[in-house]
């Protein structure tokens, strides 16, 4: 089931200058620290001049869609999914 959410979320992001990678490592959601197990896809888009990064990540049997606003550097949880039919 896919649930649309629009809520601020804490994200621990790691930039590795040797591997040239930027990966969310941990998220703080629902009162718990959750380790990110997998990044499904990372993509970007613009709304006007503002660039947004979207990280689709997996943690604790759930898929999270995380949005980073590069103007404010604030993160938003946009979607939660368990992969089951609605």
């Amino acid at each position: 089931m896919i649930q649309k959410i629009s809520a601020p979320i804490s994200v621990d992001l790691l930039y590795d200058h040797r591997k040239h990678t930027v990966v969310p490592r941990q998220i703080f959601w629902d009162g718990k620290n959750l380790r990110v197990d997998q990044v499904g896809l990372h993509h970007t888009f613009r709304e006007g001049r503002t660039l947004f990064h979207i990280f689709s990540v997996v943690s604790q049997g759930l898929s999270f869609r995380l949005r980073l606003n590069t103007d404010s550097l604030f993160w938003t949880l946009e979607e939660l999914s368990d992969g089951l039919a609605n």
Binding site: Q38, G40, L41, V58, S63, R65, D82, G83, L84
Partner: peptide, 13 residues
């Protein structure tokens, strides 16, 4: 396929 890439729980479904 891109949706299945983004959300691994949708893969092979």
């Amino acid at each position: 396929t891109i949706e299945q890439q983004a959300n691994p729980f949708l893969r092979d479904k």
